[in-house]
Design a protein around this nucleic acid. Sequence first.
RNA 1: GCGCCCGUAGCGCAGCUGGAUAGCGCGUGUGACUCCGACUCACAAGGUCGCAGGUUCAAAUCCUGUCGGGCGUACCA
Length: 561
Amino acid sequence: MYELTKNTLKGWINEALAAAKEKGELAFSSIPDYVIEEPREKEFGDFAANAAMLMAKEARMAPRKIAEIIVSNLKTEGTFIREIHVAGAGFINFRLDGSQLVKVLEMIDEQKENYGRIDMGKGEKVMVEFVSANPTGPMHMGNARGGALGDCLASVLDWAGFDVCREFYINDAGNQIEKFANSLEARYIQELKGEDAVEFPEDGYHGEDIRVHAKNFIGLYGDSYLDKPSEERKKALVDYALKINIDALKTDLEKYRIYYDVWFHESTLHENGKAREVVDELTARGCTYEKDGAVWFKATDFGEEKDEVLVRANGFLTYFAVDVAYHRNKLIDRGFQTAINIWGADHHGHVARLKAAMAALGIDPNRLEVILMQLVRLVQGGEVVRMSKRTGKSITLNDLLEETSIDAARFFFNMRQANSHFDFDLDLAVEQSNDNPVFYVQYAHARICSILRLLAQENIAVKAAKEVDLTLLKEEQEVDLMKLLARFPEEIRSAAIAREPSRITRYVMDLAAGFHTFYGACRVKTEDMALMDARLVLVAATKTVLKNALSVLSIEAPEHM
RNA sequence: GCGCCCGUAGCGCAGCUGGAUAGCGCGUGUGACUCCGACUCACAAGGUCGCAGGUUCAAAUCCUGUCGGGCGUACCA
């Protein structure tokens, strides 16, 4: 709504500029890329344009003078503009009459659960790949953060009009799986023949879950694999345990309200030969060479500091090579215009070389976007808890969800930008106290529901926005609340552009605050029936927007608390 | 050494495609329900935007340097 108003204002200013140029009052070659913004200070009006300042240099004229010329050429009589002032360094400030803002309530009433959706993406295919935890054990706190960030980013993009695919990349091949196999095998033998029968691999997975897999495997197959060749034994153990682990990942993520469109198995890239092919393709393009028995990618040709190994001397493909194949698959074979990955910051060294490989394959590297997320530190009792999958002492996503609410966890992880260090205070999260802002937001929604319930008992219903005189909403708190409601689609846009779902979290907090302030200042249930009708429309609209914004974050909007 | 990220109020963070008096939450202090849910609201105190230069009509925002913290810099994933 307000976006429309801004465009209207811009159109008028552009006309005024053209007129001034025509009359010879102002000299310029082209209109600069100025902005219409909502000033922080209310005394400056509802909107402000900075066009005059940007033109000062070329026009060789004081910004204020230019602003005066623009204003003198503006034709706003009979429109919704109430006042225009030139202020400060040369801002043109506009004040609107009540008719514009109120339209947002009608719009919300019409669009309901779709209010906030925009067509910025125009159906473009975007993939968001996130979590992609190793299936060798349970998910940790970093996965919890990545899950909340990735899922909400995908939602934001969906609301912004993109065709979004959520994908989980299962690393079911390679070195980690080898370690997993060796660990399982050792535990299997130890279970049957005693702890000393075989040495546990030093770099293996020491977690209790490995023992549990071994025990359960024995429950099913007994010692029948003891005499089999190691390779066969390991394969059976891995096939068994991997399936259980992947199913567990799915279950845990669904509990966290994350549903993937695609679970992509790394192993398929090995089985269908695509991983090898990509090395061949790079070679055909003259981007590889052999050294010390390994095949190297000439990353230095693409601005990197050093080259990267694609095929190790032992003939195995590196993780890097497979990842190149995987991203080629995303961007070419499956036709995603953009592939966004959420990665832990410890992977950042990998970003530039993967982009370099995309460039080498003739793919615009900007189509691959990596959002780096600082790893979460878990704090309990004022002390940092080390997280390590291998010690078996880590706190898992599952633990987290048992100890706090899903709503709180998702909200918490989306309060900060991905790229900021984040201490997750478990004590606070477990407390479910009022310190947690999710309750503040949910309370606003429940409070509205309570008002509507109370009035419904007296047979007072919310009328359609069009049938009500909304211009009665003139109190400062009412106007502020309407402005907040009007902001929602723009928040979706900026969150999508910045790839930053935390903006929605912050917005929903602002909106809740705006409602609570309104509630403190204005009574909905009042003697003045016309005013009550108008306020009911405002309150119902607030409820809709709160619910919509929370749904972007997959957080519940409760009717009672 | 080199590269990336972060340094804004006591604490945790926004703001960073340059714009008018730098915001929010927690905490602290003082107030507000016989009245729509006080899980709330109002007011107040609290800042050399790490530091130093530079660009600009205008710098928390852009550039350079510097200090402090995190993370990378594997024929690991």
